[in-house]
Structure formats: C-alpha cells, structure tokens
Design a protein around this nucleic acid. Sequence first.
DNA 1: TATTGTTATACTCTATAACTATA
DNA 2: TATAGTTATAGAGTATAACAATA
Lengths: 144, 144
Amino acid sequence: MRSPSQESREVAQEFSLVLRDMVLLLRRVSADQAVSAQQLAILGSLERGPRRVTSLAREHGVRTPTMTAHVSRLEEAGALSRGGDADDARAVAVELTAHGAELLRVGRAARVAYLSECLEALTSRERAAVAAALPVLAKICADR
Amino acid sequence: MRSPSQESREVAQEFSLVLRDMVLLLRRVSADQAVSAQQLAILGSLERGPRRVTSLAREHGVRTPTMTAHVSRLEEAGALSRGGDADDARAVAVELTAHGAELLRVGRAARVAYLSECLEALTSRERAAVAAALPVLAKICADR
DNA sequence: TATTGTTATACTCTATAACTATA
DNA sequence: TATAGTTATAGAGTATAACAATA
C-alpha cells in the first residue's frame, strides 16, 4: 500500500504537467476577448461594491504598483472610476462603472461558453470527474 | 435530470473561477526559481534531443519570434546551444546543454516538491479526486 | 514562391525603488 | 513613523510586421 506522501508525489508529477497545459487553455479562453483574464477578475471583485487599491492588490496576489497600473488601464477603458474615500484622504475608492459591468458580463459569458464546449466534448463520467475535483483544486489554490 | 449541456454549463462556471486561481498557484510554484515555468517546459522538450525553433514554437503554442526570444534568453543562461542543421541551412538545431539538463532537474524537483506538499494536506479521498481529474483536464487542454 | 529564423516594435503583467500625501 | 497610492524603471512573455537567407 502506498503512503500518503508517495501518493502525493506521484499525483504531483502529473499535476505539474497539467498545470502547465492549463496556462495554454487559459490563453485560448481569453484570446480575442476585450478584457483579459486578470482584468476580468479585478472587475469581478468590484461587483459587490467599491474597493481600495491596496485591498484589490492583496486579493489578487500582486503588489500595489501592479494594481495601480491595472486600475489605470481599466479606468482609461471606462470600466471603473476612482473616487475619494470620505474617511481617509489617502485612500482611493475604486468603483465599477456601467460599462465595466457590461464588460464583465460579456467576458464571463464568453469564458463560460468556451469552457462549456470543452466539457460537452467529454463523457458524463469524465465531466463528473472534473466537477468532483474543482472544489479540491480551489482549496489547494486558496490554502496558501 | 440535467442534460449534458446544462451540466457542462454549471461545471464551466466553477471551472472558470478555478482556472483563474490556478494561475496564482502556478505563480507561487515558480516563485524564487532560477527557471520560469515556460522556460522549464521548453527545456523539457529538448530532453529527448535537438529541436528546431519552429517546432518548439508549435509545441508550446507560441509564435516563432516569441520562441526565438526564449531560445536567446536560455542560450545566454547557458541552458541550451544553437547549432546548424546538416540538411537545411536555414534551420537551427536547439540543443540542451549539461547546465540546462541540471536546471531542468532542479526546477522539476522544486515544482513537484511544492505540489506534493499541497496534495499531502488533503484527505486521501480529495487526493483521489484530483488524480482522477488530471487525465481529463489534460485531455481538455490537448484537444484544441 | 514558400519556409526558417531574426529583428524591430509594442502591449500586458509583473516587480522593486523612490516618492508624495495623509494618518 | 506607518500607511495609501503613484511614478519611474526594468524584465518576462506575448504578438504583428518586415526582413534575410535558403529551399
């Protein structure tokens, strides 16, 4: 019988290869889209209300200057607006615009449509295997 | 009972979110490594013998100028060498050096070690779910 | 003409360092 | 002093367009 650590090592080797392929999949999913995957994720964070630049940066695992750049590009595109914070004059309240909400809706729909097609090409058993793994993968990603 | 297309759509929505998180996981996996994930994949292709720039580009889903840039960076790092092709004077035979083989070995080991740790933190049932999904995910990625 | 590869250029995403303004 | 955010700069990774050399 295999120990958990032997087992983990074996799964990890295959996981390592698949993880690389997932990047290519993601690139195809986002190809020809008005909004990149990163931008879409940021707009998604703003859906439930304004956020500060620092808080967005933390949430998306990037440094503040990186998020400042994202916010600037998205502002130029009319997807969000920078507002002041009443409580703290240093802070910036980043808020989704109507145009941003529309970009979010369209971008999300395109991603889901593409992935749906991929999944429809599978057997229902294979689809079930993916569905069962997704919460676990989410847990792995969230853990650290 | 749900139709395959309803089912696919539901799974796709969750997949879309997890896919985004996987990018962050990949970034953590590659952090503080001498060789990036992309570079590692290219070195991996060279493991079984020399390859042409065009063939590497196709294999990794990028355009030729992009692969030329990768090859140039890896050559500067001493990980590979450019040689001529005996049959076709236009072609370049890209070959792994001993240093490149070592970078590949170390980089792979680090990735697998990191992912092993992530997997060890799971229950054996969860690990089994990931293991079952990996071949399916590989299939999805390869299909297009 | 078609193919192989490079160079030039530009855009996205990322980082660190240095700065301003406010707390 | 510490925190919020920006600007300046740089590097990796990607693309297209234009080119040289060879088939």
